Lab assay of single mutants.
Amino acid sequence: MDVFMKGLSKAKEGVVAAAEKTKQGVAEAAGKTKEGVLYVGSKTKEGVVHGVATVAEKTKEQVTNVGGAVVTGVTAVAQKTVEGAGSIAAATGFVKKDQLGKNEEGAPQEGILEDMPVDPDNEAYEMPSEEGYQDYEPEA
């Protein structure tokens, strides 16, 4: 019985440690998101679009440190934060509304985080759909 109880105690310690790591990862992701939003706020009209992409990228980098179902929630929060940063930029006159959601080359930025393969159960990952990809044929 002692062996059984000791095993359960060790398992509990492992769960607590994993929860603490997840909590730490979420806190880091939130900190990076805040950094990115402050970065966007300090940019001029020309830099705002690039700044919004930076927020998304920093958040995406930190999301990889967070495991399990938390990833889905962090990704949703990050996307809403990026959308909010863009709205703030438009409201303050840093950028025109028609410039939001495009990178410096004018290509749409939507789907940055949505296409990231995420499995809350950590069982399997699927690649994003290939609808947006084109076949590449090298020139002879």
Rank of each mutant, 00 (worst) to 15 (best):
D2W: 04
F4P: 00
F4C: 04
G7Q: 10
G7Y: 11
K12R: 03
G14F: 08
G14E: 04
V15H: 00
V16Q: 12
V16G: 06
V16C: 07
V16A: 07
A17Q: 14
A17Y: 05
A19R: 04
T22W: 05
K23P: 01
V26A: 04
E28L: 05
A29W: 09
A30Y: 15
G31Q: 05
G31Y: 11
G31F: 12
K32E: 00
K32L: 15
T33N: 02
K34F: 11
L38W: 12
Y39D: 15
Y39V: 06
Y39M: 02
Y39N: 10
V40E: 00
V40Q: 00
K43M: 02
K43W: 12
K43F: 00
T44Q: 00
T44C: 05
G47N: 12
V48W: 06
V48T: 03
V48P: 11
G51A: 04
V52A: 13
V52G: 01
V55C: 06
A56E: 01
K58C: 01
K58G: 00
K58W: 02
T59I: 15
T59K: 01
T59W: 15
K60V: 09
E61P: 04
E61M: 04
Q62N: 04
G67V: 07
G67C: 07
G67M: 02
G68R: 15
T72P: 00
G73Q: 12
G73A: 05
V74P: 02
V74F: 08
T75G: 10
A76D: 06
A76M: 01
V77N: 03
A78D: 00
A78C: 07
K80E: 03
K80F: 15
V82H: 08
E83A: 12
G84V: 05
A85W: 03
S87V: 04
S87C: 05
I88E: 04
I88N: 00
I88S: 05
A89Q: 03
A90D: 02
A91R: 02
A91H: 10
G93E: 06
G93P: 08
K97Q: 04
D98H: 11
Q99I: 14
Q99L: 02
Q99K: 06
Q99V: 10
K102P: 10
N103H: 15
E104S: 05
E105S: 10
A107K: 08
A107H: 09
Q109N: 10
E110C: 11
E110Q: 10
E110K: 02
E110D: 06
L113G: 12
L113S: 13
D115M: 14
D115T: 10
P117E: 14
P117I: 10
P117F: 08
V118G: 11
E123G: 09
A124P: 12
Y125P: 15
Y125A: 08
Y125T: 13
E126W: 14
E126Q: 11
S129R: 07
S129G: 10
S129D: 05
E130A: 10
E130R: 01
G132Y: 14
G132D: 12
Y133G: 09
D135F: 10
D135A: 02
Y136R: 15
Y136D: 02
E139V: 08
